[in-house]
Amino acid sequence: MFSYIVKRLLGMIPTLLLVSVVVFLFVHMLPGDPARLAAGQDADQQTVELMRHELGLDLPMPRQFVRYFQHMMQGDLGTSLRSKRPVTTEIADRFMPTLLLTLTSMVWAVVFGMVIGIVSAVWRNKWPDRLGMTLAVSGISFPAFALGMMLMQVFSVGLGWLPTVGASSWKHYILPSITLGAAVAAVMARFTRASFVEVIQEDFVRTARAKGLSERVVVIKHTLRNAMIPVITMMGLQFGFLLGGSIVVETVFSWPGLGRLLVDAVTQRDYPVIQGLVLLFSFEFIAINLAVDVLYGVINPSIRYK
């Protein structure tokens, strides 16, 4: 197991290198002049050229990338053109609100999604199954921004129960986490149901029932562990999606997280921040995939890594 983890960690290096190249080229293809934005719209051409030299934009593209990569390997992602603060500081200030919102959304989405999926699989083709899958299809089909605005209209504007802006108390997490986790809960429900239906038809499950074991024991002890491996894969992918794809929800609720930071950076052509955030999201997906692979061996000891 240890050697497998070390190999995967070493394998992250070329992946991150490739991502950094793609992100660097993509950012430099965006319209707009970073030097002009950094100097200000009212700056004269001489000031703009001085700013371009300070940012290293007057160097050839390969030298710019080498300089950027060297700084990145030292933990320096550059300075925000908008706030003049280090990009690492900008990201660090916004990371925890996004992480807490993601964890909150993921917890309730996994719990409700798995419960609905298991109930639908056990009572397949009966009314609990139809009701659960109707809710799942509704959760997938309903756009996040529309759900967020509807929840704000009902619970904030209409009833006045919950706040809509900010992240200072637990009440601020309720509406954004429901909005963000609704689609994940729906996906988890459908995926859990499909996995359970497949496993529950296996011979070892029929043998357990033939021994006279209760349905609860059959579902929890014999079916759950074997059905969890593909479900955990989906959980990891969905967690990465939530952590890096909460842009719409954070915009709707004015959430002070990474999604809002990325939107502001793209709007204001803050290239260093865009590069830093995309690299962070890429690293998160790679790390989550590694964690999921390690969990395989914890859930199913028969899996061995070579």
Rank of each mutant, 00 (worst) to 15 (best):
I5M: 08
K7D: 06
R8G: 07
R8E: 05
G11C: 05
M12W: 06
M12P: 05
T15R: 08
L18R: 01
V22Y: 07
R36G: 04
D42P: 00
D42S: 01
E49I: 01
M51P: 04
R52Y: 03
E54R: 14
E54F: 02
L55P: 05
D58S: 04
M61F: 14
R63F: 07
F65I: 12
M72N: 02
Q74P: 01
T79N: 03
K84T: 10
V87D: 00
T89M: 01
A92Q: 07
A92K: 07
D93E: 13
D93S: 13
R94F: 00
F95L: 10
P97Q: 05
L99G: 03
L100N: 11
L101Y: 02
T102H: 03
V107P: 00
W108P: 01
V110N: 00
V111W: 09
V111D: 06
M114P: 05
V122Q: 14
N125L: 09
W127T: 13
P128A: 14
T134P: 01
A136M: 03
S138L: 15
G139I: 13
G139A: 11
P143F: 13
F145W: 14
L151A: 04
L151R: 05
Q153M: 15
P163F: 10
T164P: 00
A167V: 04
S168H: 07
W170P: 01
L180I: 09
L180G: 02
A182H: 00
A183F: 13
A185W: 13
A186H: 14
F191I: 12
V197N: 06
Q201G: 13
E202Q: 15
R206K: 15
T207H: 13
R209S: 11
A210H: 10
K211P: 10
R216D: 03
K221T: 13
T223K: 03
R225Q: 11
R225D: 10
N226M: 08
V231P: 08
I232L: 11
G236M: 12
G240P: 04
G245I: 08
V248G: 03
V248C: 01
T251H: 11
P256D: 08
G257D: 01
G259Y: 03
R260Q: 12
R260H: 09
A265P: 04
V273S: 02
Q275T: 08
Q275Y: 08
Q275E: 09
L280Q: 07
F281W: 07
A291F: 15
V292L: 05
V294W: 14
V294T: 12
L295W: 12
G297R: 09
G297A: 12
V298W: 12
P301V: 09
S302V: 13
Y305S: 06
